[in-house]
Design a protein around this nucleic acid. Structure first.
Length: 859
RNA sequence: GGGCAAGUGGCGGAAUGGUAUACGCGGUAGUCUCAAAAACUACUAGUCGCAAGGCUGUGUGGGUUCGACUCCCUCCUUGCCCACCA
C-alpha cells in the first residue's frame, strides 16, 4: 500500500518538475537585478538608441501603515503590466519607484506606534522595499527616491524659493482646521465630514498666518489645458469641478453715507433688477467699519461671534436655515434707484467671490432668508403659464434658473426669455456702468504651511528689519533636526487667536539665525511644508538621483547629460488612484507649469497620459484597519507566488474598476498557472511538427487571434479579458496536446510571451527552457509577438438565421458563399427548423448582413 | 442639493447594434483511489417537453430598429466625489 503511493508520487515527479513559485521567483528577481534588465541607459543620446524612451510611472506609496496591502499591489501590478508590455514592444522603459515618506500620514503612523518618525522611516523603507521587490515589478532599483532624505528635500526647499522669488509664495492669515483632542492643526484632507480622521472629534476653525502658493493665478490654464491631455475622464471632470470657473459680472455700488463701495459677484445677471437686499459674510473685515456709529454695533458683534462659533465647531452640520442681522446700512442700488438694506448672513462665504452677495427673489437661499426676516422681494421674471406666474408674483415659491422664464424688467429686455439674454444683460450692465464682466473660481490658493515636524522646513527667514527672506540657495538644505519633542503641539489656549506652534518653534538652536540680507538677528520659519509639495515634483527627480548640484534634468543646463535625460520627460503613462484627482494631480500640474514659465523645463503638463485604477475591496467594503479587512499580500505571495497573485488581481475585473478579493478566486488562478507550467515544461524537447493533424490550422489561427486580442486588451488596460483570452488559448493547446501528445514549441512560446507581463517569473523560467540559448537573454527584452492578418480571415463561417429577429437556426458556409445573398437564402430555407417556422407565412422582407446574419421578416 | 460611474446566471465578470452569459469561481455527476485530497472528463440562466424544440430572460416602464445588454427618453436602486459657490 505504502509502496504504491510512493510509486505514484515518483511517477508524477519524473514526468514533470514540480512548479515551485518561490524558488523560481527569488532566482529571477536576483538575476534581473544583477543583469539590470530594468535599468535603461538614461544617458544614451537619443540618436544612438534605436529604442524609443517610455517613462512609465505609478504613484509612489506613502508608508503610513505596517506595509502594503493588496490594493497597493493591484495598482503597482497593473502599471507594471503596461510597462512590461511597452518594453516588449520595443521601447526603452523607465519604471522607477520610491517612497513619499514625509508628511502627516507617515508621521501619524510613527506617533501611533510610538516610534520617532526618523527611526520609523528606516523601518518602513526596509519593509516597503522588500514587499515591492517581492511582487516582481520591473522597477529600476538603481534610482529610488525618498522624499524625507536631505538630498531630496533640499530641492523641495529650492522649489519653494523659486516660487517665492517668482511672487507665487506669500503669507496670509487664514482659517485652518484644528483638532482639540489631538492638539494639532490638520490638513483639509485629514478632515472627514468635519471630524478628525484619527480620533473622530469635531474639528474647529482657527485663524493662523500661513504660507500660500498662488495656484489661483494658474486656474484658467489648469482648466483649459485639460482638453490637451489624455487622462481618465472622471479625473478631468473632478478637476474641472474643483477649479469651477464661474463667469458673470462684478457689480459696484456705493454704501449710503460712507465712502465705501461694495463689489458683488453675480453669475446670474439676468435678474439684476430683482435685487432688494445685500448680504455680507460675517467674517468680512469690512463689517466693522460698516457698523461704526449705526447703533447696531453691539448686536452685530454678538451675532458675528455666535456664527463664528457655530462655524468653528461644526463645519458641515451648519444648520441649513440661514441666520442674519441687519447692519443699519444701505446700498445705493442705482439700477432701481432704490436704497437696499445690507444684512449679515450666515450663508455668505468670505472666501468666495467678493464676500458680498446681491440678493433677489430669484435665488433659493435669498428667498428663504428674506421670508424669514421680512425683507421685501421683487420678482422680475415669470413662468409663461399665467396661473404659475401669479404664484411667483405672490411669492408662493422661488422661481429660478428657468430657461423659458420671461423677464419683465428692465424694459429693454421685457418679454425676453431668461435663457437667451445672459450675454445681452452683461453688456447692458457694462454700458450703464453698474459693473463689468468678471470671472471667479472655486479654486483657492494652496495652503502650504504645516505646524508639524515631519516635513521639509520652509526655507524662509524672518528679519525684523528686512522682512521675509529666502534662505540662500547655497545654504540648502535647511536640515530637519532630530528632536525628541517631535509631537504636534497644536495651539496653546485654543480660542485666544494665538498662532499655532510647530515642534521646531521650541528649538532656538534651530530657528535662531542671521538675516541673509543685513546679517542681523533673525528667525527661521519653523513650519514645514505640505507633503503634497514633496510629491508634486518627484517624477522629475527619478531621472537625476546622482546629482547634487541640480534637482532634475533641464534641457538648458550645462551639466553633463542633463539634456539627454530631459528627453525622457514628460511622463508617458501615469497610473494611480482617482482619490488624488484634485490633490496631487492638480498640484503636480501647477508646479510643472510654474517650472515651465520659469524656463527651467520645456513642457507644461507633467503626465501626457493618466489612467485611474480601481479599488480593491474585501467583502464589499473598502479595506481599513478598523473594519479588520486588510488583505496583506505577503502570505499569498508565499503560498501561491507573486505570479499567481498578480494574474489573479489583474483577472478580477477591468483595471479601472477594481474588485472584491476572494481566496477561492486566487486558487483558480493558481490552477491555471500550474497548468501552463506543466504543459510548457513537458514539451520542452519537442521538435516534430504538428502539420497534417486535423486541428493544426485551427491552432495556428487561434494563435494569431490570441495575439491580436491580448495586444489590444493590454493597450486598453483590459487585463481581465487579456487573461481570459490566454486561458482560452491555453485550453486549446492543452486539448491538442492531450489528443496527439505532440505540440510545436512556437505555440507555447507565444503563450508565455503574451503571459510575460502578468506572470514575469514563470514565463522567464519557461522561456529559458524553450529557447535553450547559451547566453542569457530575458523574455522581458524579447519582442512582443505579431499576428498575421491572413490567419484572421475565416474560410468558413456560421450564418445565423433569424425570423423576426428570433434565432431559428444556423448554417455553416465558406467565405465565397457568404457573399452570395441568394445562395445563403436558399441554404437557410432548407434548414428544417427555419423551414418549419416559415411554412405558410408571407415574407415581407429579407435582411442579410454579410457573413453574420440573415433575418426573415414575416407578418 | 450637484456631478460621475454602475445595475447581466448562485458569484467575479464577457459581449458597444447581429447566436446574451466568453473566461474564471462555486456546484453536480463521473474517472483514478481501500478512502480522501489533488488532477482529469461532462453538465451547470429559468421554465415546459421523452425528444426535436418552444417560451421567458441583461434594475423599471416606454421609444427607435428587420433586429437592442448595447442607441434615445422615464423612473428606481447602489457606489464614489463635491457641496450654503451667489
Amino acid at each position: 500500500m505504502i509502496y504504491s503511493k510512493m510509486m505514484r508520487n515518483l511517477k508524477a515527479d519524473s514526468i514533470i518538475q514540480k512548479y515551485n513559485a518561490s524558488e523560481i521567483e527569488a532566482k529571477w528577481q536576483k538575476i534581473w537585478e544583477k543583469e539590470k534588465i530594468y535599468s535603461p541607459n538614461l544617458d544614451a543620446p537619443a540618436s544612438l538608441s534605436t529604442k524609443k524612451p517610455f517613462y512609465n510611472l505609478m504613484m509612489f506609496p506613502y508608508p503610513s501603515a505596517e506595509g502594503m496591502h493588496v490594493g497597493n499591489m493591484y495598482a503597482f501590478t497593473g502599471a507594471d503590466v503596461y510597462g512590461r508590455f511597452k518594453r516588449m514592444q520595443g521601447n526603452d522603459v523607465f519604471e522607477p519607484i520610491g517612497l513619499d515618506g514625509f508628511g502627516i500620514h507617515s508621521e501619524n503612523y510613527a506617533i501611533k506606534v510610538g516610534k520617532h518618525p526618523v527611526d520609523q522611516a528606516k523601518i518602513s523603507e526596509k519593509k516597503f522595499y522588500r514587499q515591492l521587490k517581492s511582487i516582481g515589478n520591473g522597477f529600476d532599483w538603481t534610482r529610488t527616491v525618498e522624499t524625507y532624505k536631505p538630498e531630496y528635500y533640499k530641492w523641495t526647499q529650492w522649489l519653494f524659493i523659486q516660487l517665492f522669488k517668482a511672487g507665487l509664495a506669500y503669507r496670509k492669515k487664514a482659517p485652518v482646521n484644528f483638532c482639540p483632542s489631538c492638539k494639532t492643526v490638520l490638513a483639509d484632507e485629514q478632515v472627514e465630514e468635519g471630524k478628525c480622521e484619527r480620533c473622530n472629534s469635531v474639528v474647529e476653525k482657527r485663524d493662523l498666518e500661513q504660507w500660500f502658493f498662488r495656484i489661483t493665478k494658474y486656474a484658467d490654464r489648469l482648466l483649459s489645458n485639460l482638453t490637451q491631455i489624455d487622462w481618465s475622464e472622471k479625473v478631468k471632470i473632478a478637476q474641472k469641478q474643483w477649479i469651477r470657473k464661474s463667469e458673470g459680472i462684478n457689480l459696484r455700488f456705493k454704501v449710503k453715507d460712507m465712502d465705501i463701495y461694495f463689489e458683488m459677484f453675480d453669475s446670474v445677471p439676468q435678474t439684476f433688477m430683482a435685487q432688494t437686499f445685500t448680504v455680507i459674510a460675517p467674517e468680512h473685515p469690512m463689517v466693522h467699519e460698516l457698523i461704526k456709529s449705526t447703533g447696531h454695533e453691539k448686536p452685530v458683534i454678538e451675532f458675528i461671534a455666535k456664527i463664528k462659533k457655530k462655524k468653528a465647531t461644526n463645519k458641515y452640520d451648519l444648520e441649513k436655515k440661514p441666520e442674519g442681522i441687519f447692519t443699519g446700512r444701505y446700498l445705493e442700488y442705482t439700477p432701481t434707484g432704490k436704497l437696499i438694506p445690507i444684512w449679515i448672513a450666515s450663508y455668505a462665504i468670505y472666501g468666495y467671490g467678493t464676500g458680498v452677495v446681491n440678493c433677489s427673489a430669484h435665488d433659493e437661499r435669498d428667498f428663504i432668508f428674506a421670508k424669514k426676516y421680512g425683507i421685501p422681494l421683487h420678482p422680475v421674471m415669470f413662468p409663461q403659464d399665467p396661473a404659475e406666474a401669479k404664484k411667483v408674483k405672490n411669492l408662493e415659491y422661488c422661481y429660478h434658473h428657468a430657461e423659458n422664464g420671461v423677464l419683465q424688467e428692465p424694459v429693454e429686455f421685457k418679454g425676453r426669455k431668461w435663457g437667451e439674454v445672459r450675454l445681452g444683460v452683461i453688456e447692458f450692465i457694462g454700458k450703464k456702468g453698474y459693473g463689468e464682466k468678471s470671472v471667479h473660481y472655486h479654486l483657492r490658493d494652496w495652503l502650504i504651511s504645516r505646524q508639524r515636524y515631519w516635513g521639509p522646513p520652509i526655507p524662509m527667514i524672518n528679519c525684523e528689519k528686512c522682512g521675509w527672506q529666502p534662505v540662500p540657495e547655497k545654504d540648502l538644505p535647511v536640515k530637519l533636526p532630530y528632536i525628541e519633542d517631535y509631537k504636534p503641539l497644536g495651539i496653546h489656549s485654543a480660542g485666544s487667536g494665538q498662532a499655532g506652534k510647530a515642534p521646531l518653534a521650541s528649538h532656538p538652536e534651530f530657528y535662531k539665525t542671521k538675516c541673509p540680507k543685513c546679517g542681523g538677528e533673525a528667525k527661521r520659519e519653523t513650519d514645514v511644508s505640505d507633503t503634497f509639495l514633496d510629491s508634486s515634483w518627484y517624477f522629475l527627480r527619478y531621472l537625476a538621483t546622482d546629482w547634487n548640484d541640480i534637482p532634475f534634468p533641464m534641457p538648458k543646463s550645462k551639466i553633463e547629460n542633463s539634456a539627454q535625460r530631459a528627453a525622457w520627460l514628460p511622463v508617458n503613462m501615469y497610473i494611480g488612484g482617482a482619490e488624488h484627482s484634485v490633490l496631487h494631480l492638480l498640484y503636480s500640474r501647477f508646479i510643472t507649469m510654474v517650472l515651465h514659465d520659469l524656463k527651467i523645463i520645456s513642457f507644461e503638463e507633467p503626465f501626457t497620459h493618466f489612467r485611474a485604477h480601481g479599488l480593491i475591496v474585501k467583502n464589499g467594503a473598502k479595506m481599513s484597519k478598523s473594519k479588520g479587512n486588510i488583505v496583506v499580500p505577503d502570505a499569498y505571495v508565499k503560498k501561491f507566488g507573486a505570479d499567481t497573485l498578480r494574474a489573479y488581481l489583474m483577472f478580477m475585473g477591468p483595471f479601472g474598476q477594481g474588485g472584491d478579493f476572494r481566496d477561492t478566486g486566487i486558487e483558480g488562478m493558481y490552477r491555471f498557472v500550474r497548468r501552463v507550467w506543466s504543459l510548457v515544461s513537458s514539451i520542452k524537447y519537442q521538435v516534430s511538427s504538428i502539420e497534417g493533424k486535423d486541428e493544426s490550422l485551427e491552432l495556428e489561427r487561434s494563435m494569431h487571434k490570441t495575439i491580436k486580442s491580448v495586444t489590444e486588451d493590454i493597450k486598453n488596460l483590459s487585463y481581465n479579458t487579456a487573461i481570459a483570452h490566454l486561458m482560452e488559448y491555453h485550453n486549446e493547446l492543452s486539448a491538442f496536446y492531450t489528443k496527439y501528445k505532440i505540440l510545436n514549441t512556437k505555440y507555447c512560446k507565444t503563450l508565455i510571451l503574451l503571459l510575460a507581463p502578468f506572470a514575469p517569473h514563470l514565463s522567464e523560467e519557461l522561456y529559458q527552457l524553450l529557447v535553450n540559448k547559451k547566453e542569457f537573454s530575458s523574455i522581458h527584452l524579447a519582442s512582443w509577438p505579431k499576428f498575421d492578418p491572413k490567419f484572421l480571415i475565416k474560410n468558413e463561417m456560421v450564418i445565423v438565421a433569424q425570423i423576426n429577429g428570433k434565432l431559428r437556426g444556423n448554417i455553416m458556409v465558406d467565405s465565397a458563399t457568404s457573399k452570395n445573398k441568394a445562395k445563403i437564402e436558399e441554404l437557410v430555407r432548407k434548414d428544417g427548423n427555419v423551414a418549419k417556422h416559415l411554412e405558410g407565412k408571407a415574407i415581407k422582407k429579407i435582411i442579410y448582413v454579410e457573413g453574420k446574419v440573415i433575418n426573415f421578416v414575416i407578418a
